[in-house]
Write a protein that binds this DNA or RNA. Structure first.
Lengths: 110, 110
DNA sequence: TATAATTGGTTACATAAAGTAACTAAAGAA
DNA sequence: TTCTTTAGTTACTTTATGTAACCAATTATA
């Protein structure tokens, strides 16, 4: 009967982080502005999905996109204040993973 | 070229939280042991997926399943220490959501 | 002795999201 | 004119999720 016990804002935040790749993109951008191709390589995401995710993140005000008309063109993605303020969340996930994730639970060993 | 810059433990942790519903289930269980039917109602997840998620969480040592052979049967799901130690993560998500998620970004208003 | 009610699921099928790989646009360099 | 580089997009396949009907165990009820 009780369908709305969970705080809608929390639900919204966790649905953001529940979307595949989004957390990793934000985490990666915490270390500074980066270009499209660098993100694909480091994260291991396809261009198709990275493009889609970055558009969403931009639309939600978490990321900005800046075009530098050099040659070849350079486009950098950077966290906004809203995006950067997820750092404490990422830090806690990092902390937890250091304590509780065993190497055997890691992708590489699978 | 640089395919493994991101810490594998962090990646593992975030892939856990990136799975749809998993974060909400853990968050909900932070308030104590709960039964299957209660979780479906509160979270708004189908039995099919809740069952699947709880099995995964159990397999990963985040949740325990306890059968009470009453009538009708009562089965309770509860966080382990490993599961409960995600509380700081959830707290930070909560904090962030209170500051940065506007009511208009919420599911209800959509 | 059926019949119903309750919990905790499972099954089968439709839809949506993600993975993969080939392709394109723009713009200067050879 | 053709090549290279970046930043994507398109078309197609595979996987994950949503939906609704169904099932097993156990006790209460008619």
């Amino acid at each position: 009967m009780d369908t709305s016990v969970i705080c809608p804002r929390f639900e919204s935040a966790i649905s953001l982080l529940s979307q595949r790749w989004t957390g990793l993109i934000i985490y990666q951008l915490l270390s500074g502005p980066q270009r499209f191709s660098h993100l694909t390589e480091v994260i291991g995401i396809s261009g198709r999905l990275l493009s889609e995710r970055l558009k969403n993140l931009e639309a939600q005000g978490l990321v900005t996109r800046t075009v530098y008309p050099e040659t070849p063109v350079r486009i950098e993605y950077e966290l906004t204040e809203k995006g950067f303020s997820l750092k404490p969340v990422m830090d806690e996930i990092q902390n937890w993973s250091q304590v509780w994730v065993e190497p055997s639970e890691t992708v590489e060993t699978k």
